[in-house]
Design a protein around this nucleic acid. Structure first.
Length: 960
RNA sequence: GCGGAGGUGCCCGAGCUAGGUCAAAGGGGGCGGACUGAGGCUCCGCUGGCGUAGGCCUGCGUGGGUUCGAGUCCCACCCUCCGCACCA
């Protein structure tokens, strides 16, 4: 990125500051309930202030701002507030990192975000950090011209907000949507705290998987073999123990087990009634037999070095038929045991465990692991249990296993697991699948089974059904992401809603827990509607009892009682209630698409649960991300662009246009230096042009009618694009297309040897400026001033396109000129010499009539191929003509066809009138127009078609 | 694995839900020219190949198919990106 702002960017910056202070002075973004006006309430997901704002922030807030400004111009009373999300652990973690002197982080703060050194050290305090970045974000958004009503700002650790969340959770709990359950989490044994991705070294997400333990009884105690594939238990031939590991006895479920000592330590975190026993000399075990609980077979116990005590229990059942490791070691040790196949794979005669090892004779652990993965995958997806599987099972179990023969492995696994658990012959344990995962403190994490964990039960069918209904009735932008919401709603299950640490609101009935960040941010939009009144009237958080919220949010309870209970005057409570009812429901919710599977879906669920249907949100708009120079911004690439820096370099409007106009809403927007500069240049042109609009003519001719027609047509298109937030289209039209219209208009007048009509240009610019305002408010406002207006555009009405000014004939005429110009150019491209003149022969009326007939038939719904057949016959000449006309017509846009039908379009006169224009654009000295009857007289062998005249280029030397 | 999105000319990126308006919008970049003391400013032209006449050929992930006609419809395949939970 070029570090120097261009000269015009600094002008843009000056303009922006000027208008921002005007807006503030006029309070145009501050909204109060006004029953005489229709309201529009929109919010964007509040920021989490653990770093300064970057380009990405401009997308969501920018999109919302464009919408807010647009809706204001459409006459709505618009409320667009913003708060800050302090809840959770990342702020705390990051502050810790600063305190620890994390080199990478400090460097990013210093060189990317340009945080002053004296501030950096203070960021070690989490609250200082949150507040510091909060202010940074607020400044950046203000500099970007985001039209927020800041009087409603709050943070999620404000006591008023906590009282609101407390109320919300009590409601959810009353409805039975909060449940208690156990849950496995990554856990640091030193901190004694759960670890998520933010808490691990290298930001690794702890992946937790499920193993099944199968209890093989021996006279010394149970050997619990850990496996991912319990269905293969029928093929177990022996039990593996690691000869170099210590084994110990443990007790749980009232029974005695033997496991590796290392495994016992981990299992303690999952099995709370577990007691550690004494060491076991497992050489003694080797003399014993272990009983397979499902087959009743007695299996030998054998030593094997590959058994890993860090996974599972250190006890492994050996199934050589289906496990390469097992077959490999059975063979290596020369055990006289035959593999027992239990799974069939179509097309395979030899069990895969055997086949793979025999085929590739693996060298070491890595190769064996590869084979294992392949065997597991193949058997899981293609395998079925053998037909005779029941012959292997104990007779007394055969009834319960009757579904097992020929069943797919996936189903067999469930059947077997269920049976093992119900017979007390096994249990489930959890294991870290991507082990080792280290806590930031350096210790290896384990899986802990958290008891009494609190969940929001998004799996509750009643709740899901409400959420579905809400979604059905909501508008989604872009519509394509509705599928993602539907999928998420179905997929969501219980979700832990409280954590043991971090900032936030304690769970009201169990204060050891803090309500987790994605759970305390689902209906906070309602809070914006009343927080200003709470603050400005000195209502204390302690007065905001659940009864108050019940009344304000739901209209429940008796006003005088609520008032006397809380000590809040009745009229204030009523004011709050009325404010809430005025602004709610939320009209539009904005966020990035990453929040679909979580926040936005929770937002749906919680609104569906808490509020009555008429207060359910009406729309969600999700935007893509911002790329920088084609790449995703990331810490590791060190390509994060600080928002305030970008604003300084390009000016706020160029940043807005580049990001918001760079892509349609659902797709990622690519911010590039060259695009931003190109846009800046266009803005400069507009700015300069507005200061010296050419004038001098009062004539309203074809050029004027054409310009107004383009304007009005575009206005209709842009309005519809704005309604759907298709901002790329809006930007393209307003920034590039419109300039081309103006310049073309001036050329058209020039070719008629006259000046442009200043009044018409001014009118064009007025409408242009108004439409540009939502996207680029500062420059639009400045241009508005330049063309003589003293009002604020915030208070102006969005222009309504006037159909009267849409003039198809004129548009067709100019399009026709451009087509002729293109044709001439393409001839000139292949012509040498020094071309000077073009002779244009327009087609006669007869051909036009045939063509009109064709168009009428097509409009009447006749298929083109049928038309071709009908027009073909007669003589050869007219057949060729028909074919030509047919090809010609089929290449026309429906609009052109309509225009040809509905207008008296005269090619000859259009070209004659604008011969100069054509000459100007083609660089020729002159253009002469003739009728097709002159073709013969001039001896030219060409055949013009309607809208496709014959063109003859005359070069200097052969000039007639 | 499950679910979603997508593969278009040097690059980015429209169009593909209603097949002919598509050699394919728009922007960026590049090349050439104009302007200028100079210009990384601005303007004009070109930017798949071939062509001394508006044309022809090739072409929108790959391979088939439907059709007078396919970037657009159908089938199969290949590849890329994103999400998959206690974390904002």
């Amino acid at each position: 990125m070029n570090e120097e702002p261009s000269s015009f960017a600094s002008t843009l910056g000056d303009i922006a500051r000027k208008w921002q202070s005007e807006w503030k002075k006029a309070g145009v973004h501050e909204a109060e309930p006004d029953p005489s006006k229709q309201k529009f309430f929109l919010t964007a997901a509040f920021p989490y202030p653990n770093s300064p704002p970057h380009l990405g922030h401009a997308r969501t807030y920018g999109t919302a701002d464009v919408y807010a400004r647009y809706k204001r111009m459409r006459g709505y009373n618009v409320l667009f507030p913003l708060g800050f999300h302090f809840t959770g652990t990342p702020i705390v973690t990051m502050a810790d990192d600063v305190a620890r002197g994390d080199k990478e982080l400090l460097d990013i703060f210093k060189s990317i975000y340009e945080i002053p050194p004296e501030k950096i050290s203070m960021l070690a305090d989490p609250l200082f950090m949150a507040n510091y970045f909060k202010d940074e974000i607020k400044s950046a958004l203000t500099e970007l011209g985001i039209s927020i009503d800041w009087r409603r700002e709050f943070t999620t650790i404000d006591p008023e907000f906590s009282s609101f969340i407390t109320w919300q959770f009590r409601k959810l709990s009353e409805m039975g949507f909060v449940v208690k359950d156990t849950h496995p989490v990554g856990w640091c044994p030193v901190h004694n705290l759960p670890v998520g991705m933010h808490d691990t070294k290298g930001d690794v997400e702890p992946e937790i998987g499920e193993f099944t333990l199968i209890y093989f009884e021996t006279p010394m105690g149970i050997l619990p073999a850990a496996t991912l594939r319990p269905e293969t238990v029928f093929g177990a031939v022996c039990i593996w123990l690691n000869p170099s590991e210590k084994y110990v006895t443990v007790e749980f479920e009232g029974r005695r087990f033997i496991v590796a000592e290392k495994a016992a330590q981990r299992l303690q975190f999952q099995i709370d009634d577990m007691k550690l026993g004494e060491k076991v000399d497992h050489s003694k075990l080797l003399e014993l037999k272990a009983r397979n609980p499902l087959t009743g077979n007695l299996l030998p116990i054998v030593q094997a070095e590959f058994v890993n005590p860090s996974t599972g229990t250190g006890v492994v059942m050996s199934v050589p038929a289906h496990a390469p490791f097992d077959y490999f070691y059975v063979k290596k040790k020369g055990l006289k045991i035959n593999p027992i196949p239990v799974i069939d794979v179509p097309g395979e005669k030899v069990p895969l465990g055997v086949k793979m090892v025999e085929q590739s004779s693996p060298k070491g652990k890595d190769e064996l692991e590869k084979l294992t993965e392949e065997v597991y995958r193949t058997e899981y997806h293609k395998g079925t249990m053998i037909s005779s599987i029941l012959e292997l099972a104990s007779p007394e179990l055969r009834d319960e296993l009757s579904d097992l023969p020929d069943s797919p492995v996936k189903e067999a696994r469930e059947i077997v697991t269920k049976l093992l658990l119900s017979k007390g012959a096994g249990r489930k344990i959890f294991e870290m699948m991507n082990r080792p995962v280290y806590c930031r403190c350096g210790n290896e994490t384990v899986v802990k089974l958290l008891k009494d964990q609190w969940f929001l039960d998004y799996g509750n069918e009643q709740w899901k059904s409400l959420a579905r209904t809400l979604l059905e009735n909501m508008r989604i932008l872009p519509e394509e992401v509705r599928k993602d919401f539907q999928y998420t709603i179905e997929w969501l299950e219980k979700r832990a809603c409280a954590r043991t640490r971090g900032l936030g609101t304690p769970l009201p009935w169990d204060k050891r827990w803090i309500i987790e960040s994605l759970s305390d941010s689902t209906i906070y939009m309602a809070f914006y509607t009343v927080i200003k009144t709470i603050r400005s009237n000195g209502i204390r958080a302690t007065q905001l009892l659940p009864e108050v919220w019940d009344y304000v949010m739901l209209g429940k309870g008796d006003l005088s009682q609520v008032s006397s209970l809380s000590g809040i005057p009745q009229d204030l409570i009523s004011t709050m209630r009325n404010e809430f009812l005025y602004w709610y429901p939320l009209d539009s919710r904005h966020s990035g698409k990453d929040l679909i599977p979580n926040h936005l879906s929770f937002f749906i669920f919680n609104h569906a649960a808490i509020f009555p249907r008429d207060l359910w949100p009406k729309q969600i708009a999700v935007n893509g991300f911002v790329l920088y120079e084609g790449k995703k911004m990331s810490k590791s690439l060190r390509n994060i662009v600080a928002l305030r820096k970008a604003i300084r370099l390009y000016g706020p409007d160029a940043v807005r246009l580049t990001i918001l106009g760079g892509a349609e809403i659902g797709t990622d927007s690519n911010f590039t230096d060259s695009d931003a500069r190109s846009i800046t240049d266009q803005l400069r042109w507009l700015y300069e042009f507005s200061k010296s609009i050419p004038s001098g003519s009062n004539e309203v001719g074809i050029p004027e009618r054409w310009l107004m027609s383009k304007l009005n047509r575009s206005n209709v298109d842009i309005t519809s694009a704005m309604d759907q937030l298709r901002l790329r289209e809006v930007m393209n039209t307003l920034v590039y297309r419109f300039r081309y219209y103006v310049e073309d208009y001036i050329d058209l007048t020039k070719s008629l040897n006259r000046e442009p009509n200043g009044r018409v240009l001014r009118e064009f610019l007025e409408v242009w400026t108004k439409m540009l305002f939502p996207l680029a408010p500062h420059i639009a406002q400045e241009v508005w001033l330049n063309i003589g207006h003293t009002t604020l555009l915030d208070n102006e009405k969005w222009p309504g396109g006037n159909e009267i000014h849409v003039d198809s004939t004129v548009e067709l005429s100019v399009d026709y000129l451009h087509a002729v110009i293109d044709d001439i150019k393409s001839i000139l491209n292949v012509l040498g010499g020094s071309p000077e003149e073009a002779l244009i022969y327009v087609a006669d009326e007869e051909k036009m009539n045939i063509m009109r007939k064709m168009i009428t038939e097509i409009k009447g719904g006749k298929p083109l191929n049928q038309l071709l057949r009908e027009f073909k016959p007669r003589d050869k000449e007219s057949a060729t003509l028909a074919k030509k006309l047919f090809d010609h017509v089929s290449q026309m846009s429906p609009e052109t066809r309509d225009m040809l039908l509905s207008t008296e379009f005269d090619e000859f006169s259009v070209i004659s009138t604008f011969a100069n224009y054509v000459a100007m654009k083609t660089g020729l000295k002159s253009i002469k127009v003739y009728n097709s009857s002159d073709l013969q007289t001039h001896g030219v062998k060409k055949d013009p078609l309607p809208l496709k005249p014959a063109i003859v280029i005359v070069s200097g030397e052969r000039k007639r």
